Amino acid sequence: MDKRVYLLMVIAFVIGLVELIIGGILDLIARDLNISLGQAGFLITIFSLIFAIMSPILLVMTAKIERKTLMMISLFIFLIGNVVTVFSTTYSIVFLGRVISATSGALLIILCLVMAPGLVERKYRARAIGMVSMGVSGAIVLGVPFGILIGEGLGWRAPFVIIAILTIISMAGVYFLMERRTPTPPVPLRDQLRTLKSSKIVFAHATTFLYMTGHTALYAYLKPFLQSSTSLDGTWISVIYFAFGFAAVSGGGIGGTLGDLFGTKQTIVYSLIIFGVIVYSIPYMTFNIPLLFIGVLIWGILSWAISPAMQTYLIDTSPETSDTQQSLSNSALHFGVAFGSLLGGIIIEQTTVEQNAFIGAILIGASLVTAILSIKSTYSVQNHNEWQGE
């Protein structure tokens, strides 16, 4: 494997850290800026929303720019976004920093995914893409405990200082290690969206959106939930987050293995059933910390076990548009993070954080319905060929 692929994985990890890191320091930001937890949670929402929308759009808009130059420019803008966040004194300035970071980060992730396969032999292309994806998923699940660990000791701005330093190191890596690359024309956005005329594909992406929304509605506010329902201190809350993170990372491998052994459809359906039950049950486990810990581990595994099965299902369903489906699946996932954090903030403002698990479980239940509808739908290759003008 070309070592530059690992550089791209590190860049993806750094970008991914910024997305959910707010979840671990919500209370610190809210207290310092004199805002509510819901307003602080919206900083996650805006990042993920921009991330989901802008990735395919920016890739098309920058199609003619040489890739190394584009990556350096994007990393510099990402650095500015984090510097703005570090030196912010008001909520509006933090919000601006998040918008800058999300816009540049959205393009950087796509650039990493596009550039990685070109650095290796054809037989290693899937593995190269997987390495970059691992950086993203690892950052998403470990970003919160990272924020807690650094933020509790050094203040909520400290994690962004570290991210800014890592960004500078990434820029140096790109400058010295990456070669200039002529861009290849991306698939036009309208052609990507045409595949959504298939109900089988639409319900599949809706499944990803709904279960990730349900998951994030609780996960983004897990710290205030634990603070209000248990007597755990900051150290033990960090331990729970780290345990969740490592369980989630392992969940990707477990989900892929289950998909190979039992089939993607069965894995998706049964995982969603257990997922919904465990999220609903989390508030009823707080009376016993060991039981809660086990519940969090199962929740963590299932939160990412569904993704590889769903991605394989999409490839099997529409192999001729597999790249497009992976891109749309990634957007659906980040839309889920955005709306889950927004919904969770609204729930906290209107009721109590304990209700987030109940609403999350309902959304996961809805994702089970869309998954079944997708499985029972028929994907028409003939219609797809008509959309492509064949």
Rank of each mutant, 00 (worst) to 15 (best):
T324C: 10
I282V: 11
I282T: 01
T286G: 06
M310L: 15
Y313L: 07
D316A: 05
A309Y: 09
S322Y: 00
Q311S: 09
F293L: 08
G300N: 01
Y284P: 07
P308R: 05
P319H: 14
S318F: 04
Y313R: 06
G295N: 05
T321V: 15
M310P: 14
V296T: 06
I301D: 00
T312F: 00
D316P: 12
W299N: 06
T312K: 12
S318L: 08
Y313P: 03
N288V: 02
M285W: 05
I294Q: 07
F287W: 15
L302C: 00
L292C: 02
Y284K: 02
A305E: 06
A309L: 05
L297K: 02
S322D: 11
L292R: 01
N288D: 15
I306V: 14
S281K: 08
P283I: 03
S322C: 03
N288Q: 10
F287R: 13
S322R: 10
L291C: 07
S318G: 14
V296F: 07
I306C: 01
S303C: 11
P319V: 06
A309C: 10
Q311H: 13
W304Y: 13
M310E: 15
G295V: 06
Y284T: 10
G300E: 03
P319F: 07
D323T: 13
Y313C: 06
E320H: 03
Y313H: 14
D316S: 12
T286D: 03
L291G: 04
A305M: 06
N288I: 08
A305T: 08
L291E: 05
W304K: 00
A309T: 12
I315K: 00
S318M: 14
M285Y: 01
F287I: 11
D323F: 06
F287L: 00
W299G: 04
A309M: 03
W299H: 08
P308W: 03
I315G: 08
I294W: 09
P308K: 02
T312S: 15
W304M: 12
S307L: 03
M310R: 09
E320R: 13
Y313V: 01
Y284Q: 04
P319W: 08
L314T: 04
S322V: 08
Q311V: 07
I294F: 09
L302H: 08
I289V: 14
L292M: 11
D316E: 14
L302A: 06
I282G: 00
M310Q: 15
G300H: 10
G295Q: 05
L314H: 10
I315E: 04
A309H: 12
L292I: 04
Q311L: 06
T321Y: 13
W299S: 13
Q311N: 15
Y284R: 08
S303R: 00
S318W: 04
S307P: 12
T286S: 02
P319S: 12
P283K: 04
I301E: 00
T324N: 13
T312L: 10
P319I: 10
P319Q: 03
T312V: 09
S303L: 04
I298M: 07
I306S: 00
F287N: 10
S303I: 05
L297Y: 12
I289K: 01
S281Y: 03
W299T: 11
T324Q: 11
E320Y: 08
S307N: 12
L314F: 11
A305Y: 09
S322P: 02
P308F: 01
I289Y: 09
I315R: 13
I289L: 13
F293K: 08
L314N: 13
D323E: 14
S303W: 05
P283S: 02
T324L: 01
F287M: 04
P308T: 07
Y313G: 10
T324P: 05
